[in-house]
Nucleic acid binder design. Sequence first.
DNA 1: TTTCCGATAGGACATATGTCCTTTTGCTGC
DNA 2: GCAGCAAAAGGACATATGTCCTATCGGAAA
Lengths: 234, 234
Amino acid sequence: MERSRDRHAIQELVERNGLLPVFHPEVIAAMELRIYTDREIVCAIGDYLEGLQVLVKGRLKIHTSLPNGKTMLLRFTEPPTLIGDVEWMARYPVGNTVEAVGATMLLFVSRECLLEKEMDNPAFLQFMIRNLSHKLFTNGQSTALNRLYPLENRFASYLLALLPDQDPASSGRARELRTSTLGEMAELLGTSYRHLNRVIARLTQEGVVERKRGGLRVLDESRLRELAHNHRYI
Amino acid sequence: MERSRDRHAIQELVERNGLLPVFHPEVIAAMELRIYTDREIVCAIGDYLEGLQVLVKGRLKIHTSLPNGKTMLLRFTEPPTLIGDVEWMARYPVGNTVEAVGATMLLFVSRECLLEKEMDNPAFLQFMIRNLSHKLFTNGQSTALNRLYPLENRFASYLLALLPDQDPASSGRARELRTSTLGEMAELLGTSYRHLNRVIARLTQEGVVERKRGGLRVLDESRLRELAHNHRYI
DNA sequence: TTTCCGATAGGACATATGTCCTTTTGCTGC
DNA sequence: GCAGCAAAAGGACATATGTCCTATCGGAAA
């Protein structure tokens, strides 16, 4: 993770993400820009955060650990998303691991700074409420859907979420996506490696994906969307 | 549902639940006391709420509907719990059904009243944030646990949550609990009637519960607690 | 009382997923 | 090139759970 105090860049990111009316100017002035590279951990379960962060560029992957030591994918998020909002006020330990997908930028504000300058700022407090509400709302949806569909569908959603953003030049072409290891992917999806393997085998059989050196290749994206139903890891 | 404007009662409930510092006096003055009887619906999925409610006495059952029409138990809550906090600010449609368990009391404040008097009140806004954070936090826990344990364990949790509060006179005695129908209970637990039946059969076999006219009888509460693990429908 | 229906109970079988193992494959260090 | 390892692929079997059916049972309606 790289830190920056580049006022100009920060100001621009604040504006582009509509954060100008939310934070007190002094708070914006105290913000730090944090740049993470692919797969870097932004925060891990059990951490006590020193502040709040706002994702302003790139994408994050959120997953959680179960008591039995396994992990399970929760969701992907896009700007502007708050990280540490749940833990901020009540000082909870971090509940989910947050990991960068590709290069990402987050704005960081220290806890003290917020406590000092924003606790009486309705705009900020309302912003927090809106964000928490939204998380709870989507959370509810996704929980239900998670229980509703078998792995095949969740896996399809996962692949779609990982696909690089559509760029015109590549449309139609089979897209690739790396996976650290299939074992890790299985963990993220909350299943066993064995089972994931079975599902991949089936999809390979059907020509939807293709096993490939160190990853998978998506052959039939539309079929994948069909399988993913409406369910999206957002 | 019965409405009351009994100032004295309302004032007492506000104080007993620590809400005095949270709401503006004028808001408290405008509160309405709503009394629900067992199994009455407080709000249903899709509703647009006209205000915020605070559970101040009794217990609520929260469940959700899945796209396929089935329902699934989410949790039970105890005072002081906010109802409608998620939907309040962003005007979301209600995401979960809320139902009274036994006689319950909620304080109601209209949306307009809040918008007019509390949007700039840091104490209130912070209160909302604390509540939303807490919901998100416990929500996360329960989601994970939900996926971790098989029905037998979730069922045990459910029975424990339904048991009437411990009263000294009845300790040691087998406790009864009505269930509307087993079919409904299955829905709440997010499983099929058939499967629930199987699990009950097993537990009956083991002498943990006993089938009974219109309900079940808990014979071995300690074993039930064992099965429920740490997982609790709170 | 007789009939009928919703609620129960449970059989038979299929699918989703987990656990334990074995084999194959492709790199990597020697 | 060869031994050795971690990841990948997949066989065998067990458990959790779903779907479809059938049979009972007890109370409500006729």
